[in-house]
């Protein structure tokens, strides 16, 4: 287990370095000059040179990358902004605030959104999928299967405003979506995020219903399920004690992949409900050609996905004894 974790963490670090390297390079491949943007509309050549020097952009690309990378561990001193203690992701070109602080401020919003939606997706998707498999061919199965097709074809920016209009403006059942820190008031946190969670999970849940249903049916046709029946196990205990474990393995795999999409969906959801999360930071960073912010958001996002995927791998071993972690 320990050696497995060490290997995975090392692998994760390599992946993160790769991602940051590519993002870094891509940024310079775009034709817009960040120094010019930073300098303002009227910008004499000497000032532009100075800005470029102060931002460290007159150094070779590789050196710039190294400075950025080392700053995460040892901090860095900027002529322009002053000292930046580790972990330092630089200062935003656009707002001049430390990137790390901006991300730390916004991170809980996106994390709450993503984790909450994951809970809704997995619990609801697996539950309806199991029900559909349990009642296969019966009305309940048909309702679950067809509603999952409808769900899969909906869009966040369409459903979002519609739900807000219906539940908030017309019926007044729920408060307008916003973010209240969990540590401040868990109940308010929950109630205010309920709509974004449900809206974000709608498209995904449908997929998990379908997958769970088909996986359960596949498992139920397996030889070992027949053996369990031949041992005198009841249909119900075969279903809930044997078949589900086999069915969960592919579902967890897909979920590990979907986490990235879910994070992307969280960005759209934040925009739809004007929640001030990482997604908003990312969108603004792209618009402003804000390299440090963009890099910071990308790397933190990638790190989150990589960590969650390690968690998924550990879960594997708990469900399937054939997966050995060492």
């Amino acid at each position: 287990m320990t050696s497995f974790l060490v290997r995975r963490v090392v692998g994760a670090l390599v992946i993160l370095i790769f991602i940051s390297l590519i993002t870094f390079y891509l940024f310079y491949a775009v034709p817009r000059d960040p120094a010019r943007a930073f300098c303002g509309k009227i910008c004499p050549p000497e000032t532009l040179e100075l800005v470029r020097h102060n931002l460290g952009m007159d150094k070779p690309l590789f050196v710039q990358y190294w400075l950025w990378l080392s700053a995460i561990f040892v901090g860095r001193d900027f002529t322009q902004f002053g000292p930046c203690p580790a972990p330092c992701l630089g200062y935003s070109f656009a707002t001049q605030e430390p990137v790390f602080n901006a991300i730390v401020d916004r991170f809980p919003v996106t994390l709450s959104l993503t984790l909450g939606a994951s809970v809704v997706i997995l619990s609801f998707g697996i539950l309806t999928g199991m029900l559909a498999a349990w009642k296969v061919g019966q009305p309940l199965d048909k309702i679950a299967s067809s509603s999952s097709v409808i769900g899969a074809s909906l869009q966040i920016y369409f459903v979002g405003p519609l739900v807000v209009f219906l539940l908030v403006d017309t019926l007044g059942l729920l408060p307008r979506p916003s973010y209240v820190p969990f540590t401040e008031d868990p109940l308010t946190w929950f109630v205010h995020l309920l709509i974004p969670w449900v809206v974000l999970s709608i498209i995904f849940t449908a997929n998990y219903t379908r997958m769970t249903r088909s996986q359960m049916l596949e498992q139920l046709a397996e030889d070992y399920v027949r053996t369990a029946r031949a041992k005198g196990m009841s249909g119900r205990s075969v279903f809930f004690r044997f078949a589900w474990r086999g069915a969960m393995i592919p579902i967890i795999t897909i979920f590990g992949v979907d986490l990235a999409t879910l994070l992307g969906g969280a960005i759209i959801t934040e925009q739809t409900f004007t929640l001030h999360g990482i997604g908003e930071l990312a969108v603004r960073a792209v618009q402003n050609t804000d390299l440090p912010m963009l890099l910071g958001v990308t790397v933190v996002g990638a790190a989150a996905i990589v960590i969650l995927n390690i968690v998924v791998d550990v879960l594997y071993a708990f469900i399937d004894p054939r997966v050995r972690l060492n």
Partner: peptide, 29 residues
Amino acid sequence: SSATLEKLRGNRVAMIFQDPLTSLSPFHT
């Protein structure tokens, strides 16, 4: 009835299958 059969299976009448790898649950000892 299925209750009668469940009481019978594995108890008075037992069965062993062709492929012992796929016929045993991989998830339980």
